[in-house]
Design a protein around this nucleic acid. Structure first.
Length: 268
DNA sequence: CCCGGAACCTGAAGGC
DNA sequence: TGCCTTCAGGTTCCGG
């Protein structure tokens, strides 16, 4: 499932192929992902626009266009952006460029979303800080957690507090920081907050270096998988021995999401 | 505002 | 073999 490292990988690998290119036309096979404007206007507005720059904000991918408008894509669970695929499975929208190359938005479960907006902030304004940027500090994380009584796992998934962390990397960060996912966010000691801060940054950066985790349907624009899931300690590892203490990894539903953790390294 | 649960969605996987 | 149920989790909405 595309989280920050996956979307960052897609941005980096897509940019050299699409920046500077102009949309010739757009084929909408399924209206559902097109959130704004109406599908007809969506296609009309996009045609003739050049892509100036790509940006990632949280799990959103933003195409900055020559008109000043922004094309914004959220892949949700099973979305993918594939360059010139041979036979795209579950193709929902196909972007045709002026040099006859194509970018296909595919999405098995149809939860993904696409906007064409005057300003990307209209879509992304509720997001919290970028966890890998310099202005995200231990102190900022501490302040966010201070006010929250919810389980730390649920808090890490709240995009309005920190942008880009999803289920897999929340579990990995909590394991590295040795914090039980059900701990109340405001109960963490300063030491624990510091370790969690380091763990979040380390887990996300390492996953970007490995080009994302191919759990389920995640694919890079060229169709290749990522390798980050090979480094997972607990995420999706139920029953396997903890890499540190060999205790079997457990799975616990928190807010309807599977939380994987080591009951010994992450004692409550 | 904060918190938790349901809904959206569909293919894969597992039980009987 | 085949039908049925359950599960996956990113976001949004709703009720307490």
């Amino acid at each position: 499932m595309p989280e920050l490292p996956e979307v960052e990988t897609i941005k980096r690998e897509l940019a050299p192929h699409v920046v500077g290119r102009t949309f010739a036309s757009v084929t909408i096979c399924d209206d559902k992902p097109i959130k704004q404007p109406e599908p007809e206007r969506f296609c009309q507005n996009l045609a003739g626009q050049r892509i100036d720059r790509l940006e990632r904000r949280g799990k959103y991918l933003i195409f900055h266009l020559s008109s000043g408008q922004a094309l914004i894509v959220h892949l949700r669970m099973t979305g993918a952006l594939l360059l010139n695929p041979r036979d795209p499975n579950h193709a929902r929208v196909i972007f045709h460029f002026d040099d006859s190359s194509q970018l296909a938005f595919t999405d098995r479960r149809r939860l993904g979303a696409i906007w064409l907006a005057e300003d990307a902030k209209a879509v992304t304004r509720k997001l919290g800080p970028e966890p890998l940027e310099a202005h995200f500090t231990t102190e900022i994380l501490a302040k966010l957690l201070q006010k929250r009584q919810a389980p730390i796992k649920a808090v890490l998934l709240d995009q309005s507090l920190i942008a880009g962390i999803g289920n897999m990397y929340a579990d990995e960060a909590l394991f590295l920081a040795r914090i039980h996912p059900l701990r109340q966010a405001n109960s963490l000691s300063h030491q624990e907050v510091q370790e969690l801060y380091q763990a979040i940054r380390q887990v996300l950066q390492k996953a970007i270096d490995s080009k994302g985790a191919s759990i389920d349907t995640y694919k890079r624009p060229g169709g290749a998988t990522g390798a980050a899931h090979q480094d997972f300690h607990v995420a999706h590892q139920k029953g396997k021995p903890c890499p540190k203490c060999f205790t079997p990894i457990e799975r616990l539903p928190i807010r309807n999401r599977g939380s994987y953790f080591c009951p010994r390294c992450q004692a409550i």
